[in-house]
Design a protein around this nucleic acid. Structure first.
Lengths: 137, 137
DNA sequence: CTGTGTGCAAACACTTTGCAGGTGT
DNA sequence: ACACCTGCAAAGTGTTTGCACACAG
């Protein structure tokens, strides 16, 4: 699916900033930070604009945010676009990257009486396959 | 276990700030933010001191940090002190509180080849029992 | 006495807000 | 034409750093 189609479906105006963000995120193999997205974009946008665009895209569930330790904020394409289930996220301590583990569904947790869950976030921290290989060279 | 003992075990100097934080966290029924902890403390400490104390206590695994949406940061007593297993955390959208679900252990996730996990964080968002009851009054 | 913790001031980074002007539909 | 998006400036918030002094062991 192309960025423009996604914007149309959600009745969002087609601006180059939004279009660019979506394209970068669609092609990315991992979740990207605001800076990483900006670097990969042709146009030079103000940070304010970025924040506002992210917010809009998040509200429309086009992208979602992954936060690691209150420090690192990364964005990835949302399930609603990829038509996949809720999945776990992986943070690599070595290379500082965040990946969506699309084949690792979030498990059901049995809550205490009276609790109702709306959403469950799973963040697994460790070493990714890439960094593991480098270590064994 | 008393705060002073915990500090001794970890070879940390017994300062009133550290002692106070630990005592507040031990008796708390839910995870508390920096402000909430400060309010419950007798002494009036500088924020800087708080941040440094939290960092030290975290490094020694006496307390642990729970982050919600890159906004809310709360602290709770760590497993290493309570001798319990890794557990899920619950964030209530209504009352903005975070609770350690000590009876909800974190489940094992099957990672893709080459990935090694060190730690898994599970944050469940929804409505807590308390707020659910109020809603049905 | 020595190393470490504390308080203050300042710096820093990230994010939000207000407003004027530009752009998409 | 109108609503909404953008860029700039400024403010807000949470957190970190440097330094002098205080305190625990």
């Amino acid at each position: 699916m192309k960025a423009i189609e996604i914007l149309n479906i959600h009745n969002l105006k087609r601006t180059s900033c939004r279009e660019g963000i979506i394209e970068v995120v669609i092609t990315a193999k991992q979740a990207l930070s605001e800076n990483e997205i900006r670097e990969r974009l042709a146009g030079n946008y103000d940070r304010t604009t970025f924040y506002r665009s992210f917010k809009t895209l998040e509200e429309h569930k086009i992208i979602h945010k992954i936060v690691v330790d209150n420090q690192l904020v990364k964005y990835a394409l949302d399930n609603a676009v990829t038509h996949k289930n809720e999945h776990a996220h992986f943070y690599c301590n070595e290379c500082n990257t965040v990946k969506c583990l699309e084949n690792v569904p979030v498990q059901q947790y049995q809550l205490p009486d009276g609790y109702f869950d709306v959403e469950t976030e799973v963040l697994i921290k460790g070493t990714c396959a890439n960094c593991k290989n480098q270590a064994s060279n």
